[in-house]
Amino acid sequence: MISTVLISVVRFLVGAYPRWQGCQPAATQRIYFANHTSHVDTLALFSAIPDEFRRTTRVVAARDYWCGSPVKQYVAEKGFNAVFIDRKREDKTCDPLLPLCEVLAKGESLIIFPEGTRGQDDKPGPFKGGLFHLASRFPKVELVPVYLDNLNRIMPKGTKFPVPLICTVHFGEPMQRDDDETKEQFLERARQAVEKMA
């Protein structure tokens, strides 16, 4: 219910029209990774995935932000199937990726923003290591680069309200991790796959 409302609002304000350039929507298990410039992009990417596959797609959200208030947490859980991740880890012994691995082990798809925080620029910043670890642990999952355009204009960092511009969600060609690739090489290749569509 709240998910339908959120998606309608997002469509009305920013369009969030999908453009499947490198792959087609499919039931294949995938990790969608995208550039991150505003809060709207989580919802925009979520809205761009067709209904039938969206049900089994979870969005990775930062626990420190989205669990900051009950309203935010409710919106995140009910609105876009959030799975929470600890950015500021107090307990160094537990694995921060554990909740994501559980989701992938169940066969569901994930949406992650590997920059970790919202950037200022149209170009994606350096990626954090999580994507690499997930790709190594689940080598069969398709890694789909996604570029969201115009979102830094819709809601620049520091502003409270979105301006309704049309956002297009570009889905690129799925990639996989090569066995002989280092973590840095892989992350840079993934970043370039997103940047290429800018």
């Binding site: 369009g15 115009n150 830094n152 204009r153 309200f161 301006v163 309704p164 511009l165 049309i166």
Partner: peptide, 22 residues
Amino acid sequence: REFITLTPTKPSDHTALFVAFF
């Protein structure tokens, strides 16, 4: 929305655009 989407604007135009739309 179509017009502004194709127009290069900057983050500092944000308030003006918000006022224009809403």
